[in-house]
């Protein structure tokens, strides 16, 4: 069983939720996958189109009031076991949008966040380190 858990832990699939992000962090997320220098696929990762396929959820953006229900609904669609990563300073504290009337965040008011990757936007290396930490947490939950 432990061997299988170990092997299963080498296949974390990623899913991106944009919770009202300015797109800066999303560009950096795409960078980690698309630019040869930062290849997350060597960790066994794969960006998937459907929340049903995902293991690790990457949330960007300050969770605006308009997008809150939809983002939480999407998060709930991801089958267990899953790990949540907050990418960028916005989901962690609100960032430059802090105390705005349009913001429902920070994210950990609504869902348990396992890893924080601060930055505006975070560098690809930081995102990959965050994903690596998330993989460790996720492998324990399997």
């Amino acid at each position: 069983m432990t061997l299988f858990a170990h092997l299963a832990g080498r296949s974390p699939w990623l899913y991106r939720i944009n919770a009202g992000s300015c797109n800066g962090c999303d560009v950096e997320l795409a960078t980690t996958a698309c630019i040869p220098r930062y290849d997350v696929e060597r960790l066994g990762c794969r960006y998937c189109g459907s929340p049903r396929h995902a293991d690790i959820v990457l949330v960007t953006g300050p969770l605006t009031i308009r997008v809150k229900d939809k983002a939480l609904h999407l998060w709930a669609e991801v089958p267990d076991p899953k790990v949540t990563v907050a990418v960028g300073v916005c989901p962690i504290s609100g960032g430059v949008f802090r105390e705005s009337y349009a913001i429902a965040g920070p994210l950990d008011r609504f869902i348990p966040v396992d890893v924080n990757v601060p930055g505006c936007p975070p560098r690809p290396q930081a995102i990959i380190e965050g994903i690596a930490k998330a993989i460790e947490i996720w492998a324990q939950r399997l």
Partner: peptide, 11 residues
């Protein structure tokens, strides 16, 4: 193979 083992353990 890893992917398959992982998917077998998911909901």
């Amino acid at each position: 193979f890893f992917d398959l083992i992982k998917l077998a353990r998911k909901d």
